[in-house]
Design a protein around this nucleic acid. Structure first.
Lengths: 127, 127
DNA sequence: GGCATATTCAACCACATGGTTGAAGATAGC
DNA sequence: GCTATCTTCAACCATGTGGTTGAATATGCC
């Protein structure tokens, strides 16, 4: 069985659920950068960006190498793999999306039929 | 350019960042189910599960068909596609994970060399 | 040593989240 | 109509989140 209770996935998906953090990852995919460089483009304080970086670090998506007074951050994309794997299980379902809708309609039909059996005069199409 | 500011991605990743919700999605991938059926296995109140379902609905991952007094929920995996696409950009980076570490080490080496140039007596290997 | 730079830490704030409880809506069935 | 069932709603609570500010830490440079 596939495990849905995973602190690793919790952390990764939570880290990705914020546009600032996704943007940070994108920039880090170009090259390792210092906290100050990463913070520059944002309308945020340095401390604010620092917090976001800690969330990314907690998810294992950013590695930090302290060099003197600057902290060089670099991307580590490996934890994303688990996330993609988790999501890919559902690929079959978005490929079958029409079937999903159909199963829903069929369920409604079954319910309607059952309802009709028990109270034939109700909720029928125009007689 | 890839867009990192996306309320759609915010909602999907946030919805996935909780093990209860991932478990709900997994169960819905087997078959559409009512709220009561979905709530049964959890040590949660019905209202609690109802809230989780609303988060999933807000992300577009669950569709609801009200049939009388029961609400039949079904999976809609399509929003996951955007999430996978976003993540797949990073596949190149987890395939190159050794390069990432290497670039980090190289950056450290450059910094060490620079430092050595400016203060040759410091931080050298055993002389 | 002394000052500037890079970054974090701690405290605080407003607001969201995950959870509960108890009441309120709908609907099914008698 | 009455009652039981399925579900949500509203209020509340504790905690987490995203953000700020100001002080603290650590390093680099003269």
């Amino acid at each position: 069985m596939v495990e849905d209770s995973s602190p690793q996935l919790d952390a990764v998906f939570h880290a990705l659920a914020d546009p600032t953090r996704r943007s940070l990852l994108r920039r880090l995919s170009q090259q390792p950068q210092s906290v100050g460089e990463l913070a520059a483009p944002f309308a945020l304080t340095l401390a604010g960006v620092s917090k976001h970086l800690k969330v990314l670090e907690a998810a294992g998506l950013v590695q930090r190498s302290v060099q003197g007074r600057t902290h060089l951050c670099s991307l580590d994309a490996r934890p994303l793999h688990a996330g993609v794997e988790w999501m890919r299980y559902y690929e079959q379902f978005w490929n079958q999306r029409l079937d999903v809708l159909q199963s829903l309609l069929e369920a409604e039909d079954r319910a309607a039929a059952k309802s009709a059996r028990h109270s034939p005069a109700k909720k029928r199409r125009k007689p």
